[in-house]
Structure formats: structure tokens, C-alpha cells
Design a protein around this nucleic acid. Structure first.
Lengths: 188, 188, 188, 188
DNA sequence: GATGAATGAGCCTTCATTCAT
DNA sequence: AATGAATGAAGGCTCATTCAT
């Protein structure tokens, strides 16, 4: 089994699946993209579905996600959160094909739905753990840290997926400081 | 043209598309679900793609979205935001099939991607307009209101789509008050 | 469901399967033989295997076999056996395609093997029952009637299948009278 | 050219062909069964069909058949026929795989049909020659000896192939003595 | 001798779509 | 409006075969 060829097929498959969707991408497409005969694909994978799973094996990034979302507990949120959100954002950009693919296929493929759900929740809980540590440290007030983790990360994904734009630093400052006006004004 | 039959087909199509995905749902599936012959579908729609568009025509909910996300400008955010988030959440629940379908198909169908992007951004901007009004009213501090609108809405969608759970009220309170601890503690 | 078209497909399938063997006969072959598009076959049958079963449903001939092999018990074997063997022979000729097909496929398809085994044994036992009656009637001597039934029928099948030739009447007379020389000769 | 490897391939091919049928057995199956790479098969055989022929070359048993079916002319049939039938039966049991394979493939492969026809007829004629000798010797009455040869052998094959059972000795006694009742009874 | 990656034709099957009734 | 037989273009997959190593 030549790993090189196998990897080439997996990577090309990811591109195709992300671009056209799993069922619209044909084995022939894939073969052409790799400059090989269609039959060869079945030398490396049992089936198209098996290939899809192989794509996940190779391009899944739960580990990276956890690394990015888990700063050391003793660094202050005010300093670290922007790094985290930025890192999360960069990871999504780097893995955009994969993300678009999994978001799509998870909607109808139960196995993939489970994976993508797990990935999302793992990310949230990892970050929440850090935030909880900062609550304990007295930097942050006691609150639902899973929710604040979601408020930091979910807007980033949706923005990537819908072409929306916004400053990541604003996310952090809104969350840290809130949006309520605490200064006295003449109006109210 | 029997409107009833047409509507029946569209609704059944939505269910099917949401459950199995557009490509995996067949015209025969649809016909069976409606108890009619496959050929009949083509009396009401030019093609399968045309049917997909008809589903959007009937089940798109930009209007509802705007209604839910636009409270009257003179009501305070502290009072209104939970209603808004809850209303948004309920709308997503009610339209879950549609949402799952569009999220999926938008990943690969440019026309649908445009619609879903527009829908998301419309929602965000609608809510942002209200928030901006509250900044002007002095209730909220000056900030990037589009971002805060995203922080209110995006976590809700992602939670629905990934089976995550969390209190909606926590979203509102985190955003309004921030998560920074402002009380003096022994530690800091 | 147009029975006519269905029957046409089944009959053509029988010819093809008998001539080329089940796996060498293609759906395209079949469609061409019937002057229709390949896809149409699947309007009438779930799969190629389903079609094979339908061929059995329509062309199996256990009933005819039993009719041919069961004369009335009171007619003497000396009179009736030639009719039986001839009738059996004629039935095989008439159903040659089916027989060749089942003989072939039974070798590897367990379900078909069961059917063909049952068919063969049913035939043997039916004829044996008649012979037993003739033993009881005193016309035939007590003996293993299942074996004599086999000696009457099996040579006929094998001859058909291997292009061998021989007088059917000889089979009957050999069996009835034996081949031992009972006259005195000078030699022995 | 390693004869050992070649023989191993042929024997494994016979098993596979008998079990699954020629078309359903793949070269890969064969290679796996022998623990070698698929390509190696083509060092020993030009093609799959060539391999099939090689199986015949090695496993055909016309010689054995003739040996079994040709007793010395001066031994009496009454003594020898049971040996012959039993020997024929044992040969079929020993070569069951081959028999099942050839029966199957002969139905559709003209070349194999010729071989199997020839084999059957050779057997019949060999035995018939002996029987004719016994007629000349006065032990047996003049009759169609080819038919009696068939009546001795064909039931045995069919029984093997259809899971039927019966005493071989009954075959011999039915044929030698006939089944007609020659004793006086009250009835007749 | 031996490997196994690579080929490519062809198979079964699916499915959007058409159309005569 | 409604049917469902019929089409035909792919699509996933298999497999005998080749060939560079």
C-alpha cells in the first residue's frame, strides 16, 4: 500500500466533497483529479463511504481544537481570550474545507453527525474548563461558563460559514465587559 | 392547478430534503409520501431544482426572522433581549427542518448559499439596528453592535444543530453584564 | 404493472440464462432482446436475482412433472411405463432451457440447489409410488422401487444433457425383463 | 517454472470453481487462497480460461473412468457389475468437485460441453463394450447394451448431484433380473 | 519467480424526466 | 389532474489483466 497515493486520494476527496458535496462528487471526478483510473480508488478504499471515513481519520482536528482552546489556567482571560478566539478562527480557516464538508454531511449522516457534535462539544467544554478556572481564580465572576465559551466560539464559525465579518477582538471585549452602559449619561 | 396538492408536495419535499438531503431524496420517495404517481410532480414543478426553490419560497422565513429580531426601539434591552433570544430560538425550533436543509445545501449550492447568507446577515443587522438604537438611547455602551447581535444569535443556532444545551437567559446576562469580576476579592 | 411486458422479460431471461448462464447474461442483453431500455427491467424486478426467482416462479414445472410421472395405479406397468418415460422425455425437451439453467445454477446457488433437488426427488418418489402399487398388485416383484424409478428417469435426463441417444423403449424393456439371459445356450 | 506452485494454483482453482462457479471465482480469490499475489497467476497461465483448461488437464479422469468401467470380458456380469457400479460411484465421490464444476460449466461453455459429453459417452461405451461381450458369451440376453450401461451409471451421477440416496446393489439386481414378477400369484 | 499498483471496460442499479393514455 | 411505463445517462463497483520493480 503506497501511502503517498492513498494520501493524495484522501486530500483530493476532501476538496471534492467540500466543494460539491459527498454524493455529487464522483469517483471518476476523484480519479481524474489524481490522474489515475477510477478502479484504483478501490485498491485503497473499500467503498466511497470508507473513503469518507478515511478523510475524517486524516483531517479530523479534535486534538488541534483542544490545544487551541485550552490556555494555561493561570494566565488571565483578559490577556488570553483574544489569542484563543484568534487561534480558533485561524484553525477554522486552515480547515475550512473539512468544516464545510462535515457541516454538510452531518445534517444527514448520523455517524458524521455524532462526530461533529462531539467535536463541537469537546471544544466548548475545553474552553469552559479554562473559564471555570478563571472564575475560581477570581478574575471572572461566577457564571455559566459553557455559555460564555459558546459565545466566544460559535459566532466565529457562523461568520466563516456565512461570509459574515466582524472583529474578533470585539467578541472578547463584549463578553468580558458586557455591553451595558455603566457610566452616567444625561439622557436616561 | 390544485394549490392543495402543490403545497402537499412542497411540504413533503421539505421533510424529505431535511431528513435525507436533497440528492438522496428521490422524486419517487416524494410521490410515495404523497400517495401520487411520480409523473405528477412534473405537473407542478419544472424540475427537482425548481421544487427546491419552491420549498424556499414557501418555507423561507426572513419576515418572521425580522419580526422576532426587531423589538421596538424604545424598550430597554435588559427587558427585551431575553424575549428576542427566546423568540429566535423558538422560531428555529419551529423551522428546524428548513434550517437543517438550508444549512446543508448552502454548503454546495451557490444560489442557496446566497439566500442563507442573506438570511443570516439580515437577522444580524436587524438586531444590530435595535442595539444601536439602545446605544443611542444611552442604555448600552457604544460598541460593535453587529458583533453583539451575533453573540446573541449564533450560539443559539449552533446549539440547535449540534444538540448542545444551555440557558438562553445566560446568554443575555453574559452579554449585558460581561463576565469580568468587578467586585473586590482578596486575590486580586 | 403490465403483465405482458413482465412475461416477455421473464421468458427472454430464461433463454439468456440458459444459453449464457446467469452471470454471463447482462441486463443490457435482456433489455436489447426485448427492445427496451435497461432501466425498465427494474420497473418490474427489484434486482437481477429477483428476476431469476421470477423465472422459476413462471417456468418451474413440478406440477407437470408429477402429472407425467403418476399413471393410474390400476394400469399395468408393462403398458404404462413407456408412456411415462416418453412423457418425461417430452417434458424435458419442452423445458430444456429451464432444465439446463437450473442444472447449472443449482451447482452454486444453494436456494436453487434446494429447488432442483426437491424437484428431482419429487419426481422419483412419485413414480416410485406407482411402482410400489404395481408390486402390491402383483405385477412387479418386490424390490427397491425408488431405484427402479431412478433407472427409468435419470438416464433420460443425462442423455438430454449430454447429447447421448438411445431408445426409450429399451430402458423400459431392460428394466421390466432384466438383461440376464434365461434361455439355455450351448456356450455356457 | 515451479511445478509445485502451478499445481497448487490448479488445485485451488478447482475448489473455487466448484464452490462458486467459474465466473464468480476471482483471480484475487485464487491468489489469496494460495497466499500469493494476483499477478503471479499470470506467470503460470495465459488467462483465466487457460487456467480452467489446465484444471481439466490435471483433474480430468477419463482414464480412471475407463479403468473402472471396463472389467475383463470373461468375468460374469452377475459377479462384476456391482464392483463396477461401486467403483464408478467411488470415483464420482473422489472427484466430486471436478464433477460439479464440469456439470455446471458444460451448460454454457461449448468446449467444456464437448469434453463432458465425450467423457460421459466414453464411459457408457466402455461399459457397453463389456456388456456386449457378455451377451456374446451368452450370459446376458441380446439387448441395447448402451442403454443398460446408462441405466447402471446415470442414476449414480444424478443421485450424487441431487443428494438422492439408494442402494447401488439394487441398481444391479434390478437390471440383471428385471422387475417383472415371474412367480405365479393368485392375482394374475 | 514474485509483487501489487494500476488500468479500463463493463456490470448492476438508480433516478430525473418524458409522454401516451 | 393523474398515471405509470419507459428512457437513458450516469454512478459505484468489480475484475481480468498488465507491467515496472
Amino acid at each position: 500500500m503506497q501511502e503517498g497515493r492513498r494520501n493524495q486520494l484522501i486530500d483530493a476527496a476532501l476538496s471534492l466533497f467540500a466543494e460539491k458535496g459527498y454524493e455529487n462528487a464522483t469517483i471518476k471526478d476523484l480519479a481524474e483529479a489524481c490522474g489515475v483510473a477510477p478502479g484504483l480508488v478501490y485498491h485503497y478504499f473499500d467503498s466511497k463511504e470508507d473513503l469518507l471515513l478515511a478523510v475524517f481519520e486524516k483531517h479530523g482536528f479534535v486534538a488541534e481544537l483542544e490545544r487551541v482552546l485550552l490556555p494555561s489556567f493561570d494566565r488571565p482571560a483578559s490577556e488570553v481570550l483574544l489569542e484563543v478566539v484568534q487561534g480558533y478562527h485561524d484553525l477554522l480557516v486552515e480547515r475550512e474545507s473539512f468544516v464545510r464538508m462535515i457541516v454538510r454531511e452531518a445534517m444527514t449522516n448520523p455517524e458524521l453527525e455524532a462526530r461533529w457534535t462531539a467535536m463541537c462539544n469537546t471544544g466548548v467544554q475545553t474552553l469552559a474548563r479554562y473559564l471555570t478556572a478563571r472564575v475560581a481564580a477570581g478574575e471572572l465572576r461566577p457564571h455559566d461558563t459553557e455559555i460564555s465559551a459558546r459565545m466566544l466560539t460559535h459566532p466565529v464559525v457562523v461568520m466563516r460559514l456565512t461570509g459574515g465579518s466582524g472583529q474578533l477582538s470585539s467578541i472578547v471585549s463584549c463578553l468580558l465587559d458586557g455591553i451595558t452602559n455603566r457610566r452616567k449619561t444625561g439622557k436616561d
